[in-house]
């Protein structure tokens, strides 16, 4: 009896240890793919770029000699500063437009549209994500060109005397292109938040003395806030980094920050400068994120 219990106890202890070990191993195995993925596609490239940004370049070779010259070049360069301002301005305006358009659209989708219509509209809203971007962009150029449909229409109505030239190859065109490209990324999080809005909250607010505008400010916007922040970050950061839209729809006058980096790589083959410029952009993005997370307590938001 006694022996039996003892060996039984030992066996239990052992199998328990075995189980806890295998649990740890299993945990590690589960974590392996994402960690490997992040290391391979995220950490290594970023660390490579950051290391390039502080090393002296000799011809087409990065030496091991350390320097801050690349950062000095970027930070004092009129071109880079102008490009950064231009990119940030475009991203801010794009985000604002996406918000202003996205809020009523998602409000309608979430609260007013009936079920069948809602699915169709959601499908349309997501369309920019799967209709080929280049096809859409060239269609926009066709529509907006001086001989295009929009100008033709306005001319025939007599609203304008001569074709509007800023409809394509201009800052407004870039902003319009970006806003329409990224609108789904604003609408979807907003929609998700507003679907949870109970219309009784709107009625309660009204009952407590809030007029129509106040009701939306106090209830709709409060309920949508996490979606606004998430959608806003998506649109802002992606607009900031986007290269294709400004290339196709932008004019020759303005260069985006990403484009300036590319010029360093392709034109001057200045890897160090390009890497430092990327570092500056990364620092800027981190600053924006920290700022947003600081102002809006993330725990409260999600």
């Amino acid at each position: 009896m006694g022996v039996n219990t003892e060996t039984g106890g030992e066996a239990t202890g052992f199998s328990q240890r075995l189980r806890s070990v295998s649990k740890r191993t299993r945990g590690a195995l589960v974590a392996l793919p994402p960690v490997a993925y992040l290391t391979l596609f995220f950490a290594i490239p970023i660390l490579t770029i950051l290391s390039f940004s502080v090393r002296v370049q000799q011809n087409l070779q990065m030496t091991n000699e350390l320097t801050l010259d690349h950062y000095a070049t970027v930070l004092t360069s009129e071109t880079f500063r102008g490009a950064l301002f231009y990119s940030v301005r475009v991203a801010v305006i794009t985000t604002a437009i996406a918000l202003v358009v996205g809020l009523p659209v998602s409000y309608y989708l979430a609260l007013k549209a009936d079920d069948r219509f809602r699915n169709m509209l959601l499908f349309l809203v997501i369309a920019p994500l799967w209709i080929n971007f280049f096809v859409r962009s060239y269609a926009m150029i066709q529509l907006g060109s001086p001989q295009g449909f929009i100008n033709g229409f306005l001319l025939s109505l007599g609203v304008i005397g001569e074709p509007l030239r800023w409809l394509v190859y201009s800052q407004p065109a870039v902003i319009f292109g970006l806003a329409s490209l990224y609108l789904p990324l604003m609408v979807l999080p907003l929609y998700a938040m507003l679907r949870q809005l109970d219309e009784a909250w709107l009625e309660a607010a009204q009952d407590l003395g809030a007029g129509p505008l106040r009701v939306h400010r106090e209830v709709t916007l409060s309920a949508a806030l996490p979606g606004m922040i998430l959608g806003g970050l998506f649109v802002f950061l992606l607009s900031l980094g986007n290269q294709a839209v400004p290339r196709i729809l932008g004019g020759a006058k303005n260069t985006t920050y990403s484009e300036s980096i590319l010029l360093q790589l392709e034109g001057s083959v200045a890897w160090g400068t390009a890497a430092a410029a990327s570092g500056v952009m990364m620092a800027f993005v981190v600053l924006v994120l920290v700022g947003v997370f600081y102002v809006f307590d993330m725990e409260e938001l999600f």
Partner: peptide
Amino acid sequence: PAEKRPTSMVFQDLALF
């Protein structure tokens, strides 16, 4: 309109924010 009436309602499902 509701917001100008001297009434206040406690809703069946409360409708707290």
